[in-house]
């Protein structure tokens, strides 16, 4: 909030310095985020056939189509399932790995590197090998069989396919969140645990009452990064399921990509982009509002 005390000159200088500091970022956002978004909004009011080279104003026609499109509710459902599943699985796995690596063990550097390594592996290679592993006679099921579990036909059933695309994405990127959690864990003062132990708190209580509140800022950061990542999946779905079986793994970004780039409905694709933008906007505001609620150390 602006400072309205007596030394107003200093505060005015602050305003100027502040604007100068954020100017590159702000101008960049205007030019490379908001200008393109404005254009997308403009395209969404048109029927644009790239091949026939026609570009006609159709008003709200694409939006009417959006409301009538029987795929949209299914796509939104799949998107919600995917994003929630991804965030929950990613954050809990990252936390588990970080806690395990935070035990004073020799060789954690090796494990840390191994868990991080998929982050740098080519996405295409990564997806192809997982495509193999997830076959019904593939590596995952062979492994499950050794412990007496009959694995599902991963990529050919609705639930299995959703679990698969989430899992493939999580294993690829969880290393980043793990590293951030690990750093946060190492920053929790040891004395807090000592004190809690003296009070007779168990391991779980210590985790829930001390660790989690202390690292809540990192949880916020990683959840934002992960939600953003969940909106960028593409190659995984294209290679593994093509949005199937049925439409069970057709998430919004994939559907948008299909409509605009594969089916050549640029106008309708732009309309779906606008829908995505509205969702993103709501999510951003929501996350921003909630940060005070669940982040322990809000400055």
């Amino acid at each position: 909030m602006p400072d309205r005390t007596t030394w107003w000159t200093a505060s005015r200088r602050d305003h100027l310095v502040g604007y100068a500091f954020v100017a590159p970022q702000l101008l960049g956002s205007l030019l490379f985020v908001f200008l393109p978004l404005g254009l997308v909004l403009y395209y969404s009011l048109h029927e644009w056939n790239v091949l026939a080279d026609t570009f006609e104003f159709v008003g709200g026609e694409n939006y009417r189509q959006l409301l009538a499109d029987p795929n949209v509710p299914k796509v939104l459902g799949a998107t919600a399932l995917f994003s929630v599943g991804l965030v929950v699985f990613n954050l809990s796995l990252a936390m588990l790995l970080a806690v395990l690596l935070n035990q004073r063990l020799r060789g954690t550097v090796v494990f840390r590197t191994l868990f991080f390594s998929p982050v740098v592996v080519s996405l295409v290679a990564w997806t192809i090998v997982w495509g193999f592993l997830l076959q019904s006679n593939g590596g995952v099921n062979a492994l499950l069989q050794t412990v007496g579990v009959e694995g599902p036909n991963w990529l050919r059933t609705g639930t299995g396919a959703m679990v698969s695309v989430i899992g493939v994405q999580v294993f690829k990127n969880v290393g980043l969140n793990m590293v951030l959690f690990l750093a946060a864990l190492q920053g929790v003062p040891k004395e807090l645990y000592e004190a809690a132990r003296m009070d007779g708190a168990g391991a779980w209580t210590r985790f829930a009452r001390i660790t989690l509140p202390m690292i809540s800022p990192t949880v916020l950061l990683t959840s934002i990064i992960t939600v953003a990542g969940s909106l960028q999946v593409f190659a995984q779905i294209a290679v593994l399921t093509q949005g199937g079986p049925g439409t069970s793994t057709t998430v919004l970004v994939y559907y948008l990509y299909q409509q605009a780039f594969q089916f050549h409905h640029f106008g309708y694709g732009a309309t779906l982009s606008v829908l995505l933008f509205v969702i993103v906007l709501a999510l951003t505001v929501l996350q921003w509002r909630m940060r005070r609620r669940w982040v322990f150390l809000e400055a």
């Binding site: 200008l35 404005g38 254009l39 403009y42 395209y43 080279d53 570009f55």
Partner: peptide
């Protein structure tokens, strides 16, 4: 940004 829009928007 509407002015800029018109500059770059026209598809055909």
């Amino acid at each position: 940004l509407a002015g800029l829009l018109v500059l770059t928007a026209c598809g055909s």
